[in-house]
Computed example of a mutant assay.
Amino acid sequence: MDHSHHDHGMHMSDPPEARCRMSMLWNTRIIDTCVVFKSWHIRSNAGFVVSCIAIVLLGLFFEWLRSYAKRVDQKILAKEGKGRVRLGSSRDGSRERGEDAPKFSTISRASRVYRSLLYAVIVFISFFLMLVFMTYNAYLILATVAGAGIGHYLFSEFGMGGDDKGMACH
């Protein structure tokens, strides 16, 4: 049977379809890099630059949000804690000294919900940036690290307390 008269949508003059390329190895690919989502498909050098800037800004936002969460904790402690918030752990030696173990917080439910939402957003952004890092693209990794470093420089404060895990995933 002759099928030459059927149009199957393939023409020899059509350029090959741009596709996301994934690599589990260190790479410096720019065009056809996809970042986390298939819809975040980089098709040009300009798009790659914009993507790198967006990743740097996300890193900055992540560091700002971490410092904001620490300030929220300090405000809650000042307003609602009044010595009732457990700051230490049972390993702080209080039991060995014959003292009662510290009590847990009696902060309001609204404050606890707000703190939990902040924490959830921080964890989400942290994992998102980890996925960007896992593109193994040297430029995107550099953008992630640059955003974290600049953000830490701009927003971290000494003596704020709390853990300082950096951009750990969790």
Rank of each mutant, 00 (worst) to 15 (best):
S108Y: 02
R112Q: 02
A18N: 01
M24L: 12
G93M: 08
H8V: 00
A101E: 13
G59H: 05
I53V: 15
D32K: 00
V72G: 02
H5C: 08
V56P: 09
T28Y: 11
V56Y: 11
D32L: 03
G98S: 05
R66Y: 11
D164V: 14
L131C: 11
G93D: 04
S105E: 10
H6F: 10
H11K: 08
L142V: 15
A18M: 06
S39H: 06
D92H: 10
R95Y: 10
R86S: 06
D14K: 08
G162M: 07
K82P: 05
E157Q: 14
V56F: 12
D7N: 10
F133N: 05
Y114P: 01
C20W: 01
S44R: 00
H170D: 13
F62W: 09
K103Y: 05
E96W: 09
C52N: 10
Y114Q: 02
A143Q: 08
I141T: 00
F61L: 12
M10T: 12
A168S: 15
L77N: 11
F62V: 01
M10F: 14
F155I: 06
L118K: 01
V35M: 03
Y153P: 01
G59L: 07
A78S: 12
V49E: 00
H3S: 11
T106F: 07
V72N: 03
A138Y: 12
G83V: 09
V113Q: 04
M160T: 14
F158Q: 13
F127T: 03
V72H: 05
A78I: 05
V49I: 15
N27K: 04
G83S: 05
G88S: 14
G149Y: 07
C52K: 03
L77V: 09
L142D: 09
G161M: 02
G83R: 05
K70M: 14
M160H: 15
G81S: 10
